[in-house]
Amino acid sequence: MSLLKKLFSPGKEKIPVSEVLLEFRSPGCPITAIVEQDERVAYFYLWGDKDTSFGVKSCWIRNLTTAPVNIETDLIKKGIPPMLSSSFCKYPQGQTPLNSEDLEIVWLEEGDGAALLEKGEIIAIIPAWSGNGDFCGYARDCKDHGEFCWELTTTTELINRVKSAQEYWCLWDNDQTPFEIKQPQLLNSYVEILGNSDRYYAIDGNEWPPKGLFLKTGDFNDVFVTVGLSLLPMPVVEMYSENPEQINRIELGLILKSGLQQTELDKLGGWISGQADIPWKGITWLGNGHTVTFKELKNTKITAVILVKDLNVLPKFALDDYRGSPINVLWMIPITENERNHVIENGCETLIEKLNSIGTEVFNVYRPEIILN
């Protein structure tokens, strides 16, 4: 079944036959970009997998016949995809159909938005915030704020982001990939503070993007830190922050008091591997104060971790920026169910302050529960 029919058909009504011209999977997120047209209109879609909350985002590309004066409400009710009304069309008499051989999809670096190019020129963009309010996306051949797209102007900042993304994806075709360049830099920074690793895990499952996990065991603490998550900026951060470039690149760390067996450390490495996928597989983001379920250890009240960027007892790595964004190490501090509930209900500030006051006990999964008023 076509996307046009899925989106606009309430049942068994006949609709014009539509054709999928292009289909391309996001390199980082469970989202598929699709270009589809029938004899009247062409659309660009981003389609999230069923087990995500991304949904379907659609953006008009062009009318192929004369535009209607008014929005085609009746046709939408009958399951027929709407053309853009004439007052919003740069070419109200219609344009030639799209040719699949002329088309290219460029994903933004976050993997949650994409642009459609025709013969190298951007003709439509669907960013992460598409679907909010009356905004669907940007189209070159739209004027002003149309019903199913807004005008794509040369001043739109997204155009620069698309060009930057094209450059970024090309880097992965070089003889030395971004991971091969960044991995030793990150490891050197960790070694300077923690000492040489005792074990290094590949946690990518032989799938792109490559990523690893550094483990340093010691007399007092065992330290895990991821390697390579920061090569991809997290999706949807720009929907929650005015300065997404300051918080959209992360590595994850976990420190626990020594004494765990190697089998337990390996199990923890596998757990961290799963958390490293959360932003991209879930089309979400992780930041300071966020919490994640953690039930990997027995005989403890610890049931979660809180992500913390800075405590007095945490290592301070000197990590270089990557593509204009700082790399933030978020440390996974073990917490109890009551402590997590307090964060959910009241915010993270009080708990983080209390955690800072107990020093290295934050690494002890058998510590007393913090009393929070």
Rank of each mutant, 00 (worst) to 15 (best):
L213C: 00
G218E: 02
V41G: 09
I126E: 03
P27V: 01
G131W: 03
G259W: 06
L98N: 11
F24V: 13
E337H: 11
L64H: 10
F24T: 11
W285P: 04
L268A: 08
A276Q: 01
L351N: 04
N63P: 00
F214W: 05
L215N: 02
C29D: 06
E72F: 00
L215V: 03
N373M: 10
S9T: 03
A33I: 10
F135L: 01
I335H: 05
W280R: 00
A276V: 08
L84A: 15
I105C: 08
L319I: 12
I358H: 04
Q176W: 13
C348Y: 10
L103T: 03
Q37Y: 04
D204W: 00
G94K: 04
E151I: 00
Q275R: 14
K298E: 13
W271D: 12
K267E: 11
N373W: 10
I15V: 15
E110I: 05
T66F: 07
E369Y: 02
K50N: 07
Y43K: 08
G205L: 01
T153K: 04
V329E: 06
Q166V: 09
P81L: 09
E147N: 12
A318K: 15
P127E: 02
G228A: 08
N288M: 05
Y190L: 10
G113N: 12
R249W: 10
G359P: 07
Q183S: 15
E296H: 06
S87E: 11
G28F: 15
F294S: 04
I250K: 04
R340M: 04
P368N: 04
M1D: 05
L330Y: 09
L229R: 09
Y200R: 15
A304N: 14
I352D: 00
P127D: 06
D219P: 13
